[in-house]
């Protein structure tokens, strides 16, 4: 492990959004943290800060996390104005402190969107994403009686494109990054996955209408082609998916 004073350790000033609950006013608090190893991940840095806070009788910073390898979609915060921090295609848990410099001030705040209420500090309520999926983000098959897996061939290119869309981890960064707090990238990714596969076609129109309807009902904003979502998406989901969704939506409208 690196030692104090080593060049691979840095000192930082953290400005962290603290908020006790959804209906309580929040504010930034400042903490100094010393000797942060640059090999640490961002969340490990927060772990260390939290350990110290617990030992000194303070309330540690609440944040969601689980897999810590960029796949569960639990983590996320706006760091210096960027969703999931400054690195492209990276979740907060995969961001390493080597991307910061000694003496930096790091501003950390939760996803901000009307549809995501703050639960505590950096933790937000993203259950609206689950509601959108419940509206139609699946293929309606019961367990049992499925035909042989190879019965319907799927062109490799289609499978690959569907996989590109299916890689979405449901983190919500796209909503946080969008000036309109739109969920179009998230919804477009799911709709695209199923539009690209033969299995998804029978319900394509119904799905598009139901999911988009739900999204609007839940108070997400509209897409005005800012493309901020694509830029901040840790899985680099393409806005092509939004175009594909719109296309499905229009097709469904002319039913």
């Amino acid at each position: 492990m690196t030692k104090t004073g080593d060049k691979s350790c840095i000192n930082l000033k953290l400005k962290v959004w603290r908020q006790k609950g959804p209906d309580v006013k929040g504010r930034f608090e400042t903490y100094k943290t010393r000797d942060v190893s640059t090999d640490m991940s961002f969340l490990e840095m927060l772990d260390v800060v939290n350990e110290e806070m617990i030992l000194s009788g303070k309330d540690p910073i609440a944040f969601d996390h689980d897999c810590r390898e960029g796949i569960c979609g639990a983590c996320g915060a706006v760091v210096n104005g960027r969703a999931h921090g400054p690195e492209k295609g990276t979740t907060l848990c995969q961001l390493h402190m080597r991307h910061f410099s000694n003496g930096d001030t790091v501003v950390i705040e939760p996803w901000r969107s009307r549809a995501f209420k703050v639960v505590k500090d950096l933790v937000v309520d993203r259950s609206v994403f689950d509601e959108i999926i419940q509206a139609g983000g699946y293929i309606s098959v019961n367990t049992g009686g499925a035909p042989d897996g190879n019965a319907i061939p799927v062109p490799q290119a289609a499978a690959e494109k569907a996989m590109d869309a299916a890689a979405c981890i449901g983190c919500g960064a796209c909503v946080a990054a969008c000036p309109n707090a739109s969920a179009m990238l998230f919804v477009g990714a799911k709709i695209s996955q199923f539009t690209l596969l033969p299995q998804g076609l029978p319900e394509a129109k119904k799905r598009a209408l139901a999911m988009i309807g739900k999204m609007d009902e839940l108070g997400f904003g509209n897409c005005t082609n800012e493309a901020e979502c694509e830029k901040e998406c840790p899985k680099e989901i393409s806005i092509e998916n939004i175009a594909r969704m719109n296309c499905e939506f229009f097709k469904a409208g002319f039913l």
Binding site: V141, G149, N150, Q156, M163, Q193
Partner: peptide, 20 residues
């Protein structure tokens, strides 16, 4: 049966050029 079920759910498994 699991593979059949998962394909029917629209899981984008890796495919060969022929679509298998």
């Amino acid at each position: 049966n699991i593979i059949d079920q998962c394909v029917a759910q629209g899981i984008p498994f890796a495919r060969e050029y022929g679509g298998q």
